[in-house]
Nucleic acid binder design. Structure first.
Lengths: 333, 333
DNA sequence: GATTTAACTGAAAACGTTTTCAATTTGCTG
DNA sequence: CAGCAAATTGAAAACGTTTTCAGTTAAATC
């Protein structure tokens, strides 16, 4: 009546060998006589035996599961990374436990602890503001961690990103070269190092190279949402900005639609460049010019890196930078 | 040197009680004297003991983990469901193992088996074409399964959806009432029951009520992608369609942009209505009218239903239909 | 064919919990 | 304060694997 499970012991008995031998064939251990292997395999087939991964995890101290902490899967940027992660995880026989943190420090700590209690073999973290408390928790564990599409300004953790500073600098330079004297920098929370340090730095460098003084009235700190973007047009106009470097695609789409709705022509009256190159950039009209990032690859490479860490393989570079590009579409001249 | 872990045995010794007692206080069992509980709690705090979920899983046969099979997290529709699932999972102390199947029957079977070997307590499945092989695998397990946003034409599995047939019928009726004699039905793969049976049925019913003969030249079976949508304009024009009922938002956005690019005005020359009400509908211009679905809730309710199944609580209705709505935006007159 | 060596196999101890069942305490009752 | 029920506790057996170590068998050498 009850869920009767076939255990390794059952197949051992049926094949007249020991559990150890069954375990060996299941794990592909070479030290088994071919004839024995075949016999065991046949019984496994016949009994439809499936190894219990939990018991395996307890005995071997490996769960072949990795934890993935993401601010919100509903955000295309993170969804793309997550997809890359899952694909290479699958490739290496891992599964992922996916958890949404809403970039909330407390949730991040909780979630991290549950993942660790579940004995994940590794963790991929996304999120750009690392609270002290979180760093402390990270430090307490020996479980390998890699950041994906997320900077670590303390240079401690393995991570894979693009060079946000250079990319922003380059794009802002282009904007300036095209005659824009006042280009706005519209970003997510500045406490997030990726904005407040890396990207803002690129923005400032571009201004400096062009001999334009930095004006903090031109930087707009937002919550990265579409809705907020749609409301920004008046503020942007009031500081006489003629272009904007935006750090999130949905936010950028909001700004662009807000402009259009207010009769401001993009790109003729206002140029917009965005940062994540999600498919949204192509769906919106005009299509948005963007920094291109290999989103899927960032996730994929992060996961690959994590496998190396988990298997104690040597890694040459803990801070991997993937190439970025610049895709001109219709929101810039 | 080695990752020295504190076990339940360590705290038992330190608190001079038995493992059983420690286990009791960890699990909130009531039969522990308050003084003892406090003593144990103090030691747990002091030693920073964290229960090993794997060992727990082996002993109790519960992993507090559920498997989630999704075609592709990168699709906003599924990402929204997944978010709803994760949130209520967290609420009930579960974690989710998220796997992408690409709606590929073989992958689905593989993934299902890994999930089962990992002893997940339940499974949430998304995907609309259930191969015989997959059904067979489903049947073999006693692990509860619920479908989210996915139909089961055999009425076997617990599932939560909206009434796709009624929703489509209603919208097509509106299109017809507004004077469209030839409305196209543009959908994903017809093998998927949600399209080939439920939605198509609604389309046909609407035609029938209006006394319009069904013309299969007006149904366009696609792969649900944006790209495909952008290429559909000529075909749609060649059959003299003046409106389209589309089953996917990205696809619909593609069609709309394809129309606009070809100089066909939406909605004046061509009306479009889509089906999933993802945030994309608002980002695109003109904004797309859509059937509204409580995406997040579908996921949330599915997960809630699964918890009941996992805890052997009675469930009154295995086929839950959530309310849908119709949101008129700018792609219809 | 006797030795030596390499290949294969099995017994049993982990792994860190939960859970059953019996034993011990404690609190009441009269 | 004996007697009994209820509340607490602990011992030990699961749970289903992996892994170590010793033993056994087969192959190779002379």
């Amino acid at each position: 009546m009850d869920k009767q499970t076939i255990t390794i012991y059952d197949v051992a008995r049926e094949a007249s060998v020991s559990m150890a031998t069954v375990s060996r064939v299941v794990n592909g251990n070479a030290n088994v006589k071919p004839a024995t292997r075949k016999k065991v395999l046949d019984v496994i087939e016949k009994l439809d035996y499936r190894p219990n991964a939990v018991a395996r995890g307890l005995a071997s101290k490996k769960t072949t599961t990795v934890g993935v902490i993401v601010p919100d899967v509903t955000n295309m940027y993170f969804a793309s990374l997550a997809r890359g992660i899952d694909d290479v995880a699958t490739m290496y026989k891992y599964n992922i436990i996916l958890t949404n943190s809403d970039s909330n420090g407390e949730k991040e700590v909780n979630v991290l602890n549950t993942l660790l209690s579940k004995q994940v073999d590794g963790i991929i973290f996304m999120g750009n503001e690392i609270t002290d408390k979180l760093r402390e928790e990270f430090k307490r564990t020996k479980t390998p961690i890699v950041f994906a599409g997320s900077v670590d300004e303390q240079n401690i953790y393995a991570r894979v990103n693009i060079d946000y500073t250079a990319a922003v600098q380059e794009e802002v330079k282009n904007l300036i070269d095209r005659g824009n004297k006042r280009v706005a920098f519209v970003c997510g929370p500045l406490e997030q190092a990726i904005n407040g340090q890396f990207r803002l730095k690129g923005y400032k460098q571009a201004l400096k190279s062009a001999g334009i003084p930095y004006d903090d009235k031109l930087v707009f700190e937002t919550d990265d949402t579409y809705k907020t973007g749609t409301l920004l047009q008046p503020a942007l106009m009031s500081v006489n900005a003629t272009a904007a470097m935006v750090t999130d695609d949905e936010l950028a789409a909001g700004i662009m639609n807000g402009m259009s709705d207010a009769g401001v022509k993009v790109p003729d009256d206002f140029e917009i460049i965005t940062s994540n190159d999600t498919k949204l950039t192509e769906m919106v009209r005009p299509k948005m010019s963007s920094i291109t990032q290999p989103l899927y690859d960032i996730g994929a490479v992060a996961m690959r890196l994590l496998t190396k860490l988990m298997h104690n393989e040597p890694v040459d570079e803990k801070d991997v930078l993937l190439p970025y590009g610049l895709m001109k579409r219709e929101s810039t001249k």
